[in-house]
Design a protein around this nucleic acid. Structure first.
Lengths: 264, 264
DNA sequence: CGTAGTGTTGAATTGAATCAAGTGTCGTGG
DNA sequence: CCACGACACTTGATTCAATTCAACACTACG
């Protein structure tokens, strides 16, 4: 991940995952299968189990709850609900958003398979955001007090969770830089590159993927309006850097996209 | 802390602190005295020792290094230096900033006494920002591997450090909302209110304080230009909400300042 | 006491927002 | 299976908040 690729989380947790579009034999496994253990989960190389040995993974597995899948638009939790767990995305995707007093919301983050949701609630014991599924999705729920207890027993887990939180902090600061100094085009290019590296992380194509969120969501996340996002995507397409058709996007010239960002 | 008061960290660590302007008997103690232990530190009620018992504080104390004071402009560390410690501000103040490829920097955070610096380096083992003193300042240095080891022994410390990091995450997300949807005036009002509650936290006046940073720093932090920050401060003064003279500021009408933010 | 850095103010410019009017797409129920 | 309605997206014209450019004042420090 370079400085220009904002939005790539380095974190994950147990979970089963399928490609967002048909691709391999793995297809046959139900994407939202809730019986897969941490040990056999396809994401365990990038998730909380990373750095844990077999017996440790088993202990982690014991505290993870594999909920029923969430339908598009369903909430994992809502702003100011009591904080009790963090969630690892197993399949699908989520958005977190914050509603201000005056009613309008801003998207604070998107979460792809293998990424951790809910850390904003740790300090105040209440979630600071609401989080909703962007498509049919599933998660592993990790009750936080149990995670803390287990972290105390397993230094590897404590270390790894510190790293996950540290990564979230570093990522949020990059977004701070992006929002405070980038133009609309730079923000959009950076966003696309960030998604690209996050999809790469879960073994999907770095150049062709589906945007699980609306243009409006992207705008709220990047501090732009829907219209601007739409215009910028059209402009990038005209320049031959991307090819967009509805939610389908293909990055045609990653180097030039990077160039947009470093030439500011 | 309300949603509108962005920038208030809920964290701290061992350290001695003096008021930024003459106020009490405490004045006689040297502000940068490096012999004060965590147990006798004036900040221990809001710092890492919070929630630790006497013997635990003693153990924490043993790993804390109390460095020589830093002069204005001196760096605690620089971007991409190897991460080895987090720092608790004992006195004075610091700014963190990120330099992008093209050379221009953006301020990512300000740190007042009792706040923790350097958590952006935990995940990648390199600091993501540079951090410099804004005035003559001192810190407690906490070597991170030792902090991790001690956290493993003291569940209270582990819990508290998770909370400190969680708080940093929640705070960064509030700034995300601020930068993506607030006007220049809303950002500035929010910034001042945030500073106010952070000064309150260390027992300083919530309404009169010195800005340790330049208008340029504020602008880089809020995603505005120096000129805009200057104009907004002048405008707020004309409206009778604040009184500014160089770095001295007085909040004359906190309720109206809050009103600026919730009326958006 | 001079100079570099910091801050203010004004005028002109501009990037993105807003306002407006569409078209396209998808999911649902008839 | 198609039609309808709601939502998502696009494109254009206009406006506006903040930036940029410019000139100057203050202050603080060596």
């Amino acid at each position: 991940m370079t400085n220009s690729e904002i939005g790539a989380n380095g974190q994950t947790l147990s979970g089963d995952i399928i490609p967002l579009r048909p691709s391999s034999a793995a297809q046959k496994i139900c994407p939202h299968n809730s019986t897969v253990s941490c040990a056999s989960c396809r994401l365990n190389e990038l998730c909380l189990p990373i750095a844990l040995n077999k017996s440790e993974i088993h202990q982690l597995d014991a505290i993870v709850e594999r909920n029923r899948p969430y339908k598009k638009g369903e909430h994992l939790y809502r702003q100011s609900d009591e904080f009790k767990a963090v969630y690892a995305v197993r399949s699908g995707s989520f958005k977190s958003y914050f509603l201000s007093n005056n009613g309008q919301g801003r998207v604070t983050g998107f979460f792809l398979p293998g990424e951790i949701i809910g850390m904003d609630g740790i300090a105040s014991h209440r979630y600071a955001n609401s989080t909703a599924a962007l498509e049919h999705s599933s998660v592993c729920e990790i009750p936080f007090t149990q995670l803390e207890r287990l972290s105390h027993e397993l230094p590897n887990l404590q270390h790894h969770f510190f790293a996950i939180m540290g990564n979230e902090i570093a990522k949020d600061q990059q977004i701070h830089t992006l929002l405070s100094s980038y133009t609309a085009e730079e923000r959009t290019a950076s966003f696309l590159l960030g998604l690209s590296s996050r999809y790469t992380r879960v073994s999907l194509s770095p150049t062709r993927f589906l945007l699980p969120m609306t243009r409006g969501d992207i705008g709220e996340y990047l501090g732009l309006t829907v219209e601007t996002v739409s215009r910028i995507l059209t402009a990038l397409q005209r320049k031959g850097l991307v090819s967009v058709s509805n939610r389908e996007i293909e990055l045609l010239d990653i180097e030039s996209l990077r160039g947009i960002i470093s030439t500011s």
